[in-house]
Design a binder for these strands. Sequence first.
DNA 1: CTGAAAGCGCTAACAC
DNA 2: GTGTTAGCGCTTTCAG
Lengths: 351, 351
Amino acid sequence: MAKRKAVSIKDVARESGSSLTTVSLVLNKRDRRISEATRDRVLQTVQRLGYRPSRLAQGLQSQRTYFLAILVPQLRHAFADAYFGEIISAIHDHARSAGYKVLLEVADEDFLGTRQHLELFDRHFVDGILCLGVTNRDDYLSDFERHDTEQAARPRPVIIVNNYLPGHRFNFVRCDYHEAGRMACEYLLELGHRAIALIHGAAEVQTTHDFRAGIEEALARAGLKLTPQRIEDGFYTEEGGAEAAAKLLKRDRAITAIIAGNDKMAIGAISNLKESGLRVPADVSVVGCDDMHQAAFCDPPLTTIHTPIYEMGERACDRLLDLIEGKVASVEETHPVTMCVRKSASAPRTE
Amino acid sequence: MAKRKAVSIKDVARESGSSLTTVSLVLNKRDRRISEATRDRVLQTVQRLGYRPSRLAQGLQSQRTYFLAILVPQLRHAFADAYFGEIISAIHDHARSAGYKVLLEVADEDFLGTRQHLELFDRHFVDGILCLGVTNRDDYLSDFERHDTEQAARPRPVIIVNNYLPGHRFNFVRCDYHEAGRMACEYLLELGHRAIALIHGAAEVQTTHDFRAGIEEALARAGLKLTPQRIEDGFYTEEGGAEAAAKLLKRDRAITAIIAGNDKMAIGAISNLKESGLRVPADVSVVGCDDMHQAAFCDPPLTTIHTPIYEMGERACDRLLDLIEGKVASVEETHPVTMCVRKSASAPRTE
DNA sequence: CTGAAAGCGCTAACAC
DNA sequence: GTGTTAGCGCTTTCAG
């Protein structure tokens, strides 16, 4: 079995009785007024031979790959996570419609240790990178900025998706978690709640702090404070949310409402509350954040803050392409969130 | 801002005072007995300049890309699905350790319609493809076999992950769903169940039929039959499982056990049974299939068939590499499954 | 309107 | 031991 010899532009030239240049010109629609006749002849030959230009050769020539990398953090099966999954879908869809392919990478110790994040650019694997699930400790991001030679170099196209790093000038597209926290809290305050607790996500994620600050701001306006005993870490997981809820209520039975930093923790919390014989929302109201698909289907349907995750992914991808094409020099976008009222929050019990 | 001019092998040659060949030889460890001295000199220059070979150029030369594509079906956010997510993780991990990068593609109408699945090979995007979530209607798979020229051509390296297509000679690595069905059913029979129902997955997926056949075989041995009214389609989703369970029990209150084609449907079924006031397993036993992460954490913890999903992904990736490297001509592997007993199945109620 | 030829960065025969 | 050279498949001046 001989290895199939791919048909190259040469074959097309020979078969169509024209030159390499002509074929290339026709294919790339360079308007150098190729005659209709030659054009058709070439196109037909291309068709007949099933010729497809090699992107390796094209890339070598153009110094562009039309590949994007998605960098996800190392979690237990990050790809099986609904939050990341939705963003990845969004990026993939948008990238494809723009003619780009998408590469998957996990930014684990091995990957970063061997500096593969830099190889991605230096060895011409990709034209740009989208970073998901970034934390404040991800200093590999600075590597992308550093100029490796003394020559003035354009920064590499890299963008952080739905997060940011304060104090740095990394590009990002995110939604407003400060506003999200504020909205969730104000909603509960309006319902009449005074004893509001927070289950927040991982502390090394910046938006965790924004979310909390938003809540504190709303509470402060109402003359209230978020005391340490009304705060627990739920690590962004369902299990974490469940445990946090348990601790919170054991410590302070007066709590009538819980805000969770994401829907998973909210769902975990609800399941724990129900197990403990508490009714949601009759006894304790719960508000989530993100508005994932499942938020509408749990029991009770989750009242949550809608953060446009999918649109974030699309938008980030789009702006990255702008960065790549040099249309913009930097990207710092913060998008609004909206309240999504379902059934998991109501007026507090009256004791 | 000048675009950073990547350092090439030429620069290394010049700076180290040797020729292109020497540098290439050193880097590729072709043992043509380069003297220690030159070797060190070259290596140091490489280090100093931060030289990294362009894989575009290497690829053009070697006609290899060291990329693999993962083809997933078009579902609502396929990447957010735990089942696919776990396989994708497995493939990514294994591919990376073998020096391959992983590309993501969704096999939707647009993709297949524009024959991008063939471009993947023809335009040198990838060296091989892994197909997930394959159904009996996916005739695009045959395209990979067809020789586009009259010359003898090696079939393109493509492998189906955790499924297969009977009547075709496509490569696959899967686990034994016939056995899975048999095991689940026999387990219930041993517990004393006689009225066993099935919630199966999508009918266009081959393993759905295998699973059912396994169940029927076990029932037949016990002198029982799976009547049409004890079968429902749950479409592999939680919602589908819930609805199927409702229909099943409305139609036939005698049912004491339900087998579901995957864990999601089992979980959906359980939630519906509980809502209807039935206890699991006291009133109705439920057995799932797959043993996903969440199977251990639901209430009651799910008794299920453990299908080694992650290992399937790894194995499929490994065999695909064999195919690419010509070590094997075809792959048809079926792996065993095991029973995973938790709490969702018990002896039937005695009426 | 079309073709010859250089070059993208790398590898590997084939000299020397 | 090391260097020269011819491609890999394509794009793009620059001549004609």
